[in-house]
């Protein structure tokens, strides 16, 4: 039952790139006595089919900026190799503390994030007071 809930909400957030993996890793390490490294491995495996499903739907909706993804690809792959190797070198306890700091930074950023203009294509019905102010 718990696995169903954890899996579902991880899937929802992961399909949007909102940090779903954090739920799964936190749950595995806090409540299912999984080592940090093993939990990270589970999340990566979990993410692949989940992302594939979401990706197919996002592609169909024409939401993927392919040119931008391509521009990031080479650096991304090199970074992924270095990061993965790095995680294998670092001791599990230290990795967990670093992960906690990463979570803390993310959690605080999300808590205090300002509302952005809504992410929808029917913006017409929610025109804000700042109509002309293209701020930033």
């Amino acid at each position: 039952m718990t696995e169903a809930l954890v899996g579902f909400f991880t899937g929802v957030l992961a399909s949007m790139g909102l940090g779903g993996g954090f739920i799964l890793i936190v749950w595995l390490t806090m409540f299912a006595e999984t080592e940090q490294k093993a939990a990270q491995g589970v999340n990566v495996l979990f993410f692949l089919p989940i992302a594939l499903i979401a990706l197919i739907m996002h592609l169909k909706n024409g939401l993927v900026n392919k040119a931008l993804v391509k521009r990031c690809a080479l650096g991304g792959i090199i970074g992924a190799i270095l990061g993965t190797l790095g995680s294998q070198i670092v001791a599990g306890g230290l990795l967990r503390k670093l992960f906690a700091l990463f979570l803390l930074a993310f959690g605080l950023r999300e808590m205090f994030s300002k509302a952005k203009p809504e992410m929808s294509d029917n913006d017409a019905d929610k025109t804000d007071s700042k109509k002309n102010g293209t701020a930033e």
């Binding site: 992961a14 949007m16 790139g17 909102l18 940090g19 993996g21 954090f22 799964l24 890793i25 490294k37 939990a39 990270q40 491995g41 999340n43 990566v44 993410f47 521009r71 990031c72 690809a73 080479l74 650096g75 991304g76 792959i77 090199i78 970074g79 992924a80 190799i81 270095l82 990061g83 993965t84 190797l85 790095g86 995680s87 670093l98 992960f99 990463f102 993310f106």
Partner: peptide, 16 residues
């Protein structure tokens, strides 16, 4: 790209 890749590989999550 490298930054995202590194963090996602290091923490097995969070690249997004």
């Amino acid at each position: 790209g490298t930054l995202c890749g590194f963090l996602n590989g290091f923490f097995g999550s969070g690249g997004g």
